[in-house]
Computed example of a mutant assay.
Amino acid sequence: MTIYFYSTREKYGCFSNFSPHGFELDGFYWPTSEHYFQAQKFVGTPHADQIRQVKTPKDAAKMGRERSRPLRPDWEQVKDDIMRKAVLRKFETHADIREELLSTGDELIVENAPGDYYWGCGADGSGKNMLGQILVEVREILRLSNQQ
């Protein structure tokens, strides 16, 4: 069975970067993993802090996509690792959602995002599903750290 997620209001909504599970990382508190991810596009600039402080993850996403802001030159090379770092910290921080992720066993996890062919599966299922792949990796890391 494959586990699909997208909306924070559905089952497995905690897998979404918009889920309200904040954490501390790099010396700051981040309201959502979306806030962290979008801010890292402008790390070391005032834009990063502006994004960190906006009210909703939707606002953070919108700001992160504004090309009037100076995108860091290595973004394409570092974005997967930044997402991995944020998702791992989120699930390390919150025991309830960590248990939910671990309870998925060895199932494939897919972000059912019709408009996103990189992080999600896209409208026709041909997307890379990088967020789903990262959730599977994080599940394995958490499983191994539970055995210590």
Score class of each variant (00 low, 15 high):
S19N: 02
S19E: 03
P20N: 04
G22E: 11
G22D: 11
F23E: 10
E24P: 00
G27E: 05
G27S: 01
F28A: 00
Y29K: 09
P31D: 04
P31V: 03
T32S: 09
S33C: 11
E34S: 08
E34K: 11
E34H: 08
Y36H: 04
F37D: 03
F37H: 04
Q38E: 11
Q38C: 03
A39D: 02
A39R: 05
Q40P: 01
K41N: 09
F42L: 01
V43T: 07
V43Q: 12
G44S: 09
P46T: 02
P46F: 07
P46D: 13
H47C: 08
A48Q: 07
R52P: 09
Q53G: 05
Q53F: 02
V54S: 03
K55D: 06
T56C: 12
P57V: 05
K58V: 12
D59E: 15
A60H: 12
A61C: 11
A61I: 02
G64F: 12
R65F: 10
E66D: 13
R67I: 06
S68K: 07
S68W: 13
P70D: 02
R72M: 13
P73E: 14
P73A: 10
D74I: 14
D74L: 15
V78W: 06
V78T: 13
K79F: 04
K79S: 09
D81T: 08
M83D: 03
M83S: 10
M83R: 07
R84D: 12
A86R: 05
A86L: 04
A86P: 08
L88T: 11
L88K: 04
R89Y: 00
R89P: 00
K90T: 03
F91P: 01
E92V: 07
E92L: 12
T93Y: 10
D96V: 00
D96C: 03
D96I: 02
I97R: 01
E100W: 08
E100Y: 08
L102R: 10
T104N: 02
T104K: 06
G105D: 08
E107C: 12
E107S: 14
L108W: 07
V110I: 12
V110C: 06
V110F: 10
E111L: 05
E111D: 10
N112Q: 14
N112I: 04
A113D: 10
A113S: 15
P114S: 12
G115N: 13
W119A: 14
W119F: 09
G122I: 09
G122Y: 03
A123R: 14
A123C: 02
D124C: 00
D124F: 12
G125D: 08
G125W: 10
K128C: 02
K128D: 10
M130I: 15
G132C: 08
G132P: 01
Q133T: 10
I134W: 11
L135Y: 09
L135A: 03
V136Q: 15
V136K: 10
R139V: 07
Q147L: 07
